[in-house]
């Protein structure tokens, strides 16, 4: 299948990152289409976060090439940053600021006008059911709310791609479900979603996934296709089959 350039959000080829002798990411290649929800799976320490940081322009690759939103990851980091949203593994909101102050800060650095910020902020809070918490300090919100708020803020400027690094870690199943509804909404609006997760039920929600083991991509495709290809019942089975090597460490 030939995909035209306009339809590709993320393209990487032979992307490699070495820290001294250790190869964290070993020649990975993949393409993500526009509007796709792409699950970037792997065990702890498989190199997911390292790879994602290179895509977001936070870290230089040792070798390889790639584009994000059409911009080169080796030379055009600043252009990339203008077109993506990023939610890091560590919590990314300011706990000593209120909900709305966080929204205003992140929205305004992407150049949104104050009327736009107010309008989108109110809309966002309404969707999250948090309108009455507009002036609550973030530190007093429960974790699930914080995560949903952090995601909404990461896409408040309608980025072309949003990178989510384990966004649902430590969140209860009901909240995870509603978090994924937010992800679907963003994808419907044309935002490409690049998400890492440890929850295999979440992997089933993705259009396509890749599975990384020891810095390499061992499987790449739609969840149903992969289940047939590897002859496993569900994504958990696939994960056990491929990631067994590392988990014995």
């Amino acid at each position: 299948m030939v995909i035209s350039n306009q339809e590709i959000s993320v393209h990487i080829k032979d992307l490699t990152k070495k820290f001294g002798d250790f190869t964290a990411v070993n020649k990975i290649s993949l393409d993500v289409k526009k509007g796709e929800i792409f699950g970037f799976l792997g065990a702890n320490g498989a190199g997911k976060t390292t790879a994602m940081r290179m895509l977001c322009g936070l870290s230089y690759c040792t070798s390889g090439e790639g584009t994000v939103a059409g911009f080169d990851i080796n030379t055009q980091q600043e252009e990339i940053k203008r077109n993506i949203g990023y939610m890091s593994q560590k919590f990314s909101l300011y706990e000593d600021l209120t909900v709305f102050e966080n929204i205003r800060f992140y929205a305004s650095v992407y150049g949104l006008s104050s009327e736009k910020i107010k309008e989108r902020g109110d809309m966002l809070l309404k969707r999250l059911g948090m309108s009455e918490h507009k002036n609550t300090f973030v530190k007093s919100l429960p974790l699930g709310w914080k995560q949903k708020l952090a995601f909404s803020i990461a896409v408040v400027h309608n980025p072309k791609i949003v990178f989510l690094d384990e966004p649902t870690g430590g969140v209860d199943p009901v909240t995870r479900r509603s978090f994924w509804n937010l992800i679907y909404e963003a994808a419907e609006n044309g935002t490409t979603v690049f998400v890492t997760t440890h929850y295999m039920d979440e992997a089933e929600y993705c259009d396509r996934i890749s599975l990384m083991v020891n810095g390499r991509i061992m499987a790449l495709g739609a969840p149903d296709d992969l289940k047939k290809e590897f002859n496993v019942e569900n994504m958990n089975g696939l994960f056990y089959l491929l990631a067994r090597d590392t988990s014995t460490l």
Partner: peptide, 13 residues
Amino acid sequence: IGTIEQLNVIPIT
């Protein structure tokens, strides 16, 4: 607290 990652990924010179 980890917010530096967020500050590094916003378009700020």
